[in-house]
Design a protein around this nucleic acid. Structure first.
Lengths: 355, 355
DNA sequence: TTGTACGCGTTATCAA
DNA sequence: TTGATAACGCGTACAA
């Protein structure tokens, strides 16, 4: 065995062909006679050569086969969100035909005090990047990627002109849920929102709080509720978890005299928590209180309840991002896509109780 | 603007320095006079040069800054498992100082009928690879990676000689839970296991079923129970979900005369489902029935229950894998690590009810 | 502190 | 069907 790994030239020499011929045997881009292919493959096996070095190949081709996925949070946190998980699934599926893989990236440099893009985002051999939830924080990452002229797609965020976006009709969808609740006769309604900004601790929001929501999804969905119920109390959770919904529900159901007859939650997990809080308070769902969610995921352990919710095409969103990436890599125009949620009536909403 | 992107030579020319000087300005490997640095940086800004091309740099240095993480399942499925999620977190944290990112990889080629490694595993510019749950299926991936002489670490799996492993004391830990249950006086005990093989549908296992369990974790933990309760009925779930535990619990609690007074579940999610099933059957936990879990994760929505469980250092496992990768990249010896679970008594176990 | 020269391993192009 | 040639863009001895 030699010290350094065998290269394609070594294989070519051993097989008594030119390096280009050996290369072609592996890439399959040009027909090669069976005899020659045999010789090359045998030589490769003999030398323990397992195919072209990806680093050299990617330099030569100008493609690395790597798509970066940029999160603005801890990976562990990101994957706690079932919607993001499904999106990743769709994305992975959509880039697989390109022979590409997904590189997990965080936006912030964790070791740096000042806000600057993570080094890996600057130094990774990316063919394209997908930014998830482009709020203010991801701005630097976006700029960094664009400066590198890397095609970029943004999911759920505002990216400025020229950047394809994958969006949801958050406001309209949430409004539909509110309309449904109204059509059932509910007038005492509360809403439980997703976090409003980084570092928000849970609690009822003041008007001032509402005006300064920096998370677009939260703002939009709240606006959808406000279209129908301008004055409903809004409780902002600290995250999209059952336990957060539970905490919110406890507070909302605490005072029997101001108890809402319907709660519109901005995620299914929050809604599940609200349902639990209702049970805990001795309220029957949906007889005494109606609850709506958002996302349309399967909430493990919530059976026999089926949330009335807005089903968002989470996997589709990922797939669409992947398709946009594929288009941009093929030098085609990639369009923004706006997905529509589908209202699904479960067994957690009913007419307002008659007193 | 020129057609092709500016290279470091262009910058050097514009700054009237040699390419190597310009290179050094970006890498910082050699001191450069302030004046020169300025000129180079200005020239770079002028030309829109954002730093060395990662593809070329990685060819030259022989490092890509990419660590592959190989799963044997759909990504969406993998991230449904809180333990894997935490592991990813630890892994990401541990490789970040290397300036490395995590490339998500599946082991099987989804488009191929025959079992062969995914193309991305063969063609991705990996510095190292981490295989998760190396059962039989991941064998090909392991061989492929080793043929490429890429350093590899295996989490929860058997990798053969020379491959560092990150393991858990599954059997001993589970035995401790069983011992705890026995010390509480329970004799009518059942266990709920993780899936036994790919494609297993839920149900009680026969002795023959038990002998042919192909998932190591399941086998080991079951062995731990068997050390104490050789004859306890074992129900294998189809996945680690609350709803699976619920289904298992329903079956175990169906017949009041053969009802177990304690259930040992192989994961916290399964245990949570068993707790729900107990409630559903009108049994109080832990008064009428004790339940133990495994993992020590926070089960969202299970409050006020706190499972008696075995806390496994999930994040630590990821970190250890990252450390092993770092060591191997530094040409050091990387040792296998065997982690120990910590028994934690919650409020879901109590003495056997007196009749 | 700066510059020269070379090679990292591959593949696209073109001619034979 | 095969082979010669020339980059791809950079980092790093080594010399100046």
């Amino acid at each position: 065995m030699s010290l350094r790994r065998a290269t394609i030239s070594d294989v070519a020499r051993e097989a008594r062909v030119s390096p280009s011929t050996a290369s072609v045997v592996f890439s399959g881009k040009t027909p090669v006679s069976d005899a020659t292919r045999r010789r090359v493959l045998d030589a490769a096996a003999h030398l323990g050569y397992t195919g072209p070095d990806p680093r050299a190949a990617s330099l030569r081709r100008g493609r690395s086969g790597i798509v970066g996925v940029v999160f603005e949070e801890h990976l562990g946190t990101a994957f706690l969100d079932p919607v993001k998980t499904l999106m990743m699934d769709g994305l992975a599926e959509a880039v697989a035909p390109l022979g590409a893989g997904l590189l997990l990236l965080r936006d912030q440099n964790p070791t740096s005090a000042v806000s600057e893009p993570a080094p890996s985002l600057m130094t990774a051999p990316l063919d394209a990047a997908v930014l998830i939830g482009c709020s203010g924080v991801l701005r630097e990452s976006l700029d960094a990627v664009r400066a590198r002229h890397i095609p970029v797609v943004v999911i759920e965020g505002d990216a400025g002109e020229g950047v394809p976006r994958i969006e949801l009709d958050n406001r309209e969808a949430q409004r539909r849920a509110a309309e449904h609740v109204r059509s059932l006769g509910h007038t005492r309604v509360a809403t439980v929102t997703l976090p409003t900004r980084a570092g928000w601790r849970r609690g009822l929001m003041s008007e001032a709080d509402e005006r300064t929501i920096s998370v677009e999804v939260t703002r939009e969905r709240l606006a959808g509720v406000r279209d129908i119920y301008p004055d409903a109390p809004a409780y902002a959770a600290a995250g999209s978890f059952i336990d957060e919904g539970l905490a919110a529900g406890r507070e909302l159901f605490a005072d029997p005299r101001r108890r809402p007859t319907a709660v519109i939650a901005q995620s299914d997990l929050l809604a599940a928590g609200v349902v639990r809080a209702a049970e805990e308070a001795g309220l029957r769902v949906p007889v005494d209180v109606s609850v709506t969610g958002f996302d349309g995921i399967v909430v493990d352990g919530l059976a026999p309840y089926e949330l009335t919710t807005l089903v968002q095409p989470a996997t589709e969103k990922g797939r669409a991002a992947g398709a946009a990436v594929a288009a941009m890599l093929a030098e085609e125009e990639a369009d923004s896509v706006r997905f529509t949620c589908i209202f699904r009536e479960g067994n957690t909403t009913a007419s307002v109780p008659t007193l």
